[in-house]
Design a protein around this nucleic acid. Structure first.
Lengths: 219, 219
DNA sequence: ATTAATTTTTAAGCTTACTTAAATATTTTT
DNA sequence: AAAAATATTTAAGTAAGCTTAAAAATTAAT
């Protein structure tokens, strides 16, 4: 399948999962940097290929086939990230950038080889789950955005949901890394900010960041 | 640059180097599996981009810029082959197939990472030289096709110049591997066949194979 | 050195994945 | 509930990278 199509179903899949704002063509268009018209055209075309359900003015919905395709691409993306992160000295932003291209040119065969080499990991370096060869995500997702955590509680960083270089630079500088422990020291509800303590440093995070940093409770 | 363009300059580069039959559009078209007309069109277009010299009915010639591009793609291809061969249990044919796709989606940055990881190797698993980051091939090429070797002389396999699965299967089965030693036991000049001995096995190779298996003399 | 065969080129047309601009429908605001 | 704002769709058009078919040039054969 073409790169454009793979990216389109991937964008729908991700939109469905996360943002949960409705997945209309314009929404996908924005993410992909194409015009609304192009997104509508593509949606119609993919409907004829049984990859999604399309009805005028309605939200797009992937079919089972479309979801499978999206998961297949996501699997390759996350495997590449895990692989590059392990083998080379590369930042989260760099591995994302490379994976974004490589994911479309990776055979299922090679993906399995990479997975096997890494010991079939369940998560990539951002903490995102890696679908298995059948397109299944077997790990339950308990992580929540920092925005919804409680004061004076310990958490572990579970996911860094972004592809922005500045965000990752910030994370790297402040020890915000998948698996690291943090203390939520204060929630500023009115201003939608969260204060955390990590490595004896106190950091104040605004909404942009508290919505994309996911954490798990420490028991 | 697009995949089509990268493959086009790569095909010209390889044709120039090896076969040495003249590099006209039709010749390249055959290698790429496209029509002669498409190859002519592409040649004209690439001429305007300063990648090659084009004159009606004449052989195509890469400019310095075009050669650089070809060498850059070849570098990535061979680095991927070396990398996949080293890390995974994959055949020569499989690594070639994967490299053929990955080469176009690999940043210079990542190529350098791979090279560094491998200790900046000078040859890929087929024995083909890997251009450095500047597009230079620093190793001199002394290997000759088996067809031109002398009887009762020892040689080392230097290059397996093919992308055919059956050929690589045959090589793998018979110990014909980069670096392995063989004895040329007989040349059948009239029938253009070469008989070799390897691991105490005697194998008779026809012209198809003796032209693409390159060897170096053993001193 | 013609003729025949092969190649190359030109011309016209197709598909994919876009674009912009205008028309239409939906949402939001008042 | 109407008007205003926003989003979606339609329509027309473009560029890349192909195709086939016919014309022109080159190469090979007699």
């Amino acid at each position: 399948m073409s790169v454009a199509i793979e990216n389109f179903v991937k964008a729908i899949y991700k939109n469905d999962k996360h943002d949960n704002n409705d997945t209309k063509p314009g929404n996908i268009a924005k993410k992909l940097g194409i015009s609304n018209a192009a997104a509508t055209d593509m949606a119609k075309k993919l409907a004829t290929k049984d990859l999604l359900f399309y009805e005028k003015y309605q939200a797009l919905q992937l079919t089972e086939k479309g979801t499978k395709m999206a998961l297949n691409v996501v699997r390759k993306h996350r495997l590449w990230e895990a692989f590059l992160y392990k083998l080379f000295d590369m930042s989260l932003h760099e591995i994302h950038r490379e994976a974004e291209s490589l994911e479309h040119e990776t055979s299922d065969f090679l993906a399995d080889k990479i997975s096997e080499y890494l010991g079939n990991p369940k998560f990539d370096p951002h903490g995102d789950p890696i679908p298995n060869a059948l397109g299944e995500i077997t790990t339950e997702n308990t992580a929540i955005p920092l925005a919804y955590t409680q004061e004076n509680k310990l958490y572990v960083i579970a996911r860094l949901m972004s592809d922005d270089k500045e965000f990752f630079d910030f994370c790297a500088q402040n020890g915000l890394k998948y698996g690291n422990q943090i203390l939520v020291s204060k929630q500023f509800a009115k201003n939608k900010m969260t204060q955390i303590t990590i490595n004896n440093n106190t950091i104040l995070l605004n909404e942009d960041f508290t919505k994309i940093i996911y954490v798990d409770e420490v028991n």
